[in-house]
Amino acid sequence: MPLDPSFVGRTYPPTAPYQVGREKIREFATAIGANDPAHHEPEAAQALGHPDVVAPPTFPVVLTMAASRQIIEDPALGVDYSRLVHGDQRFAYTRPVVAGDELVCVNTIEDVSTRGGHGFLTTRTDVRTVGGEPVVAVWAKYVVRGEA
């Protein structure tokens, strides 16, 4: 079933706030081998002008991947998850995520199309603090492979 192009421009309600923990940043940094002290020691992050440890650049995916389920599991859009392939990923940062942030995600569908029997979906997730301060904008492109 082709994806419904009328979903272009649709924005979903903000997700529940995500509390960014210092240990979660350390755990993520350790998992990718990022040893810079600013990911692990508050004093090192403060020396760079941040209130607490700084997350690595791709850390926001911890929130945005969970948030994207709003779109991917929207029964009205009808994405077949078993045929979903992650094509592109991009981040544009206002500032890095830091421990102590309380963040919400606002998902927007930027593009929906069908070409050559495959579905294409572009999502934008605006990650901001509960106070409304923008932190990072995150784009993902997915391919929904057509039936063979």
Binding site: I32, A38, L48, P57
Partner: peptide, 21 residues
């Protein structure tokens, strides 16, 4: 991304970052 921050010399220096898989 780790390579990029190491080249940048700072873990908070990345302004924009995108890839295609």
């Amino acid at each position: 991304g780790r390579a990029v921050t190491e080249w940048a010399g700072s873990p908070d220096a990345v302004v924009e970052y995108g890839v295609r898989f």
